[in-house]
Amino acid sequence: MADRLRIRFVKLGKVRFTSHRDVARMWERAVRRSSLPVASSNGFNPRPLLAFGLALPTGAESLAEYLDVTLAPIDPSRAENLDDLGCLAVTLSDALPVGIDVVALSRLAGGADSLQQEVTLCSWDLEVRGVTASELAGRVERLLDAPSVSMQRERKGRIFDDDLRPAVRSLVVSHHHEGSSCGAPTWLRAELATRPRGVRPRELVEALGADVMQGRARRTQQWIEHGGERWEPLSVGPGLDAAMAAHAWERAS
């Protein structure tokens, strides 16, 4: 089994308008620039072996994006590069665009599953406008009390009637200005399951009423769940989290 690295990064500020595929290309180039010894796929058109987690919608920010990197067989002359993972995080962040920064990085245990398989739940902060905080709180309560919340979605040219409710694990009005008018933003904190069929932040906001407008969306955590416990694919200490995010925020704004 080849050595793998798991990397956690943030996506903040202007760069949030790039797509998941754009971010994949940025990483391919950053990896080549940093001289990290990454293994390549076989075949006519070898690509570096980078495995990304769940796609982030274009326009959304994140404090918790992940990718797994398969390393090339260790070349003794380069082994030292990998001994200092903290240094590598800085090197990679420098090679990435403003707003994308590595916040944690670790060797991955041999048999770990892929990110797409492991992660089953994501936490989101969602900025909404259009209704007052108290009105919103009422709608949230009704949504959580409802046995099902149906939404029509198109897949492969056919319309399906899906139930969003099971995927909404929790939803609270997390932050609002007292006595705020309809124009001022309110924040929701949501935990949305990724399977069997996930729900996108925008769909959740739509389900709260046609007059609710989504502003910024920010993924704050991704979760692996097992036997009643949950943990992040790669956790960051609370201090580091806040410091790195603030740093990235400053660079990106």
Partner: peptide, 24 residues
């Protein structure tokens, strides 16, 4: 003009065309 540009970008195709920030 970024504060006025940013709110427009959620509703347009390929918004990354309007953000700048290219390497170099």
């Amino acid at each position: 003009l970024w504060p006025s540009v940013e709110p427009l970008l959620d509703g347009v195709s390929k918004p990354a065309r309007y953000i700048g920030g290219e390497f170099g």
